Measured scan of single mutants.
Amino acid sequence: MDPFVVLVLCLSCLLLLSIWRQSSGRGKLPPGPTPLPVIGNILQIDIKDVSKSLTNLSKIYGPVFTLYFGLERMVVLHGYEVVKEALIDLGEEFSGRGHFPLAERANRGFGIVFSNGKRWKEIRRFSLMTLRNFGMGKRSIEDRVQEEARCLVEELRKTKASPCDPTFILGCAPCNVICSIIFQKRFDYKDQQFLNLMEKLNENIRIVSTPWIQICNNFPTIIDYFPGTHNKLLKNLAFMESDILEKVKEHQESMDINNPRDFIDCFLIKMEKEKQNQQSEFTIENLVITAADLLGAGTETTSTTLRYALLLLLKHPEVTAKVQEEIERVIGRNRSPCMQDRGHMPYTDAVVHEVQRYIDLIPTSLPHAVTCDVKFRNYLIPKGTTILTSLTSVLHDNKEFPNPEMFDPRHFLDEGGNFKKSNYFMPFSAGKRICVGEGLARMELFLFLTFILQNFNLKSLIDPKDLDTTPVVNGFASVPPFYQLCFIPV
């Protein structure tokens, strides 16, 4: 058959498939802009700032609406009420993970971030239990974070109060905490193996944040037939998995079943207990991918939040002064901060919360999916439909947070200066898919920041009023603009 005829037939089939998918069930789905064949609503979305586009569309179609990214149908949730109703009140029905062709290629359905069903539930339950087990290797997770915080302070001392970009050092600290939990080992910041790991993690975040990856996920045929950065992403992930597998083999040879040292040991012990169960989800494949998931999810998000926190503290020296006064009063100079201190430091706690609220790190979270046909607000959402959640619409709700575009710790303080919780605080998402490392991340943010401010004054290279804190939105995360500062020993 003539190649031209084959091409026309293929394009015609794709067009018909697109029209059929977009028209099927439209009477039951939430409203939304009319999609174009094949490309859907992509032309109506700013790929570099999806969150802003969703906010604009919500003003037209309401808090629940339908979009098509290519052939992929998505239902968008915008605003606290619908997000709570879906992710919390109907948590089980909305607990699936959205379709990610690239991740599915890399992870093969294993791990904790992109798995679904029984596998996801069992691996998540085990990971939560293990991360909360403060007795691994007779050292609590808090001990590990405190140790890394001391190392971080010593690295900052080496800058000798000269101007520096904190990106690298602030990236090393949370990565080392995860390494300590998974591998029972922290690395020197100049260790070549550690630097290679950091390089792969950072490069992957840069790649994932590009519009090209959005295109690959919406048109998965590209993955096999086109060159691009997605190939580098898959190569980096394969490198990390190979490295983790080597460490798993080392653990198998040296493990003491009665004295687990780290996450890998705990997983291997669980595998041993379930070795007679042919349906067990505790396999080497799941261990390797879960460890890679924890490394990827637990490094860049925390380091970016820390980097943004220091920029905001530079911009608002009056806030920094209040935090340091609270540190001096509650902790002093002669001991290290600990998590028990947080309950006695409402202002510092409010500042950490406000940093996370203000920066809105992951504006749309990772997409969910419905696990069955769901009736939601008089609409029928078919099983498997991807759910896109606007966390921006919750964290920047102007009824809950007056002047949401302003950095103001009073958003989390009552009139008496006591810490005030808010149900709208969802930087880790909400419901059954809430970030498994939430507790660890909150511990790291509090301890790293208090250790830094206990030991250093922060000095800006320019007038604080002239510092730009506008986030650089890159399609996946909101990151701070480049800046330098000086760490002046107190």
Rank of each mutant, 00 (worst) to 15 (best):
P3S: 10
L9V: 11
P35W: 06
P37H: 01
K48Y: 15
K52S: 08
S58G: 07
F69I: 11
L71A: 14
E72C: 05
V82P: 10
E85K: 07
D89E: 15
A103D: 05
R105P: 04
R105A: 08
N116V: 06
G117L: 03
R119L: 07
I123M: 12
R124L: 00
R125N: 13
T130R: 10
L131E: 03
I141S: 06
R144F: 12
A149F: 05
A149D: 02
L152D: 01
L156Y: 03
K160Q: 14
A161E: 12
A161Q: 12
D165I: 03
P166W: 04
C175L: 14
S180T: 10
S180D: 12
I182Y: 02
F183W: 06
R186T: 08
F194P: 03
M198Q: 09
M198P: 00
N202V: 15
R206H: 11
R206G: 09
Q214N: 08
I223T: 11
F226L: 14
N231H: 14
K232L: 09
L233H: 08
S254L: 07
M255I: 14
D262A: 02
F263W: 09
L268W: 03
I269S: 09
E272G: 14
Q278R: 13
S280V: 06
F282W: 13
T290G: 07
G296S: 11
G298T: 01
T299F: 08
A321S: 13
K322H: 07
E325C: 13
E325K: 10
E325Y: 11
E326H: 02
I327M: 06
S336N: 14
E354R: 01
L361E: 02
S365C: 08
P382M: 03
T389R: 01
S393C: 01
V394M: 07
H396P: 02
N398E: 14
F407N: 00
F407R: 00
P409V: 08
N418A: 14
N418Y: 11
N418F: 09
F419K: 04
F419T: 05
F428D: 02
A430N: 06
K432Y: 10
G437V: 03
E438W: 06
K459G: 06
P481Y: 06
F482I: 14
L485D: 01
